[in-house]
Design a protein around this nucleic acid. Structure first.
Lengths: 146, 146
DNA sequence: CTTGTTGCAAATATTTTGCACCCAT
DNA sequence: ATGGGTGCAAAATATTTGCAACAAG
């Protein structure tokens, strides 16, 4: 469970929903959760909270820099803990697995492209949609899994 | 106005809504239009059509490869004519201007990153959100426009 | 105590779908 | 004529907001 001070520091009262939501992101292995995911998981743990509260808290955490909001192809947003080291995402279209990566050269080229056209980048979003070749990916479970 | 044959070729009847929507994309200079944009513009031209039809036609055109669906930060999808030459987008956060770019090196690195992690890319989305320095951008109209 | 926070329900926004009527082929 | 296409209204989905009750500091 996160320290209540973590929240007070960013000007938010340390309430149960907030502490539990932050705790969820800190311990969950699937780092990427939608508002609905958070709601379901906490409800399953017996916490009685409203979906609207989840949305509000996620938004506050995003504004405070605790979480980052991502949009994969689906039309619902997912959130991840903001470890403040920038990275992009590669998503397996078969099993939904998400991996993070950072490529110095891609970052450099983005800057170069933008600068050469008279733009100054504020942020970017880069998602690679792919098939993975992991053994436990449904895509490979029956074929050549190599 | 597009040739009715363009539509028949992809198995769609050459109806007024379809021809007008395609024509709109072929002549408009802002290449990126949302369903609502299309609906408004055609309504303004006196074409009486339903928004649902616009959504249906856009979806059919996308599946036929005539259009490509994009999602910038906003939560509505926009479409662009699919000239079949792949490119990414840079969007000005101030004036909404959208420019397209293609960078060989970025493409290569994406493949390399994916391959090294055991993924095979199907598609990707890369958006750069930036400020542009164009003179007609509201961001620069009153400041140092350099 | 006092203001921020919550849950609920209602409101938004975008997109999709059911259905009866219509038109391109 | 006939099966696909259309408009309209209603549904579905994701998210936001108004409000009265509530709780952290």
């Amino acid at each position: 469970m996160p320290n209540p001070q973590d929240l007070k520091t960013i000007g938010l009262k340390a309430t149960a929903p907030r502490l539990r939501i932050l705790a969820l992101f800190e311990r969950t292995r699937e780092r990427h959760l939608s508002a609905e995911d958070v709601y379901q998981k906490l409800a399953a743990e017996g916490l009685d909270l409203g979906l609207a509260t989840v949305y509000r808290v996620l938004m506050q955490f995003e504004q405070a820099g605790l979480l980052r909001r991502l949009r994969f192809e689906s039309d619902k947003a997912v959130f991840e803990l903001n470890d403040s080291s920038h990275h992009d995402h590669i998503v397996c279209l078969q099993c939904g697995r998400v991996e993070e990566f950072f490529d110095e050269e891609i970052e450099r080229r983005q800057e170069a492209v933008a600068a050469s056209r008279g733009f100054r980048i504020h942020e970017h979003s880069l998602y690679l949609y792919a098939d993975c070749t992991k053994k436990d990916c449904p895509h490979n479970s029956q074929g050549s899994a190599d």
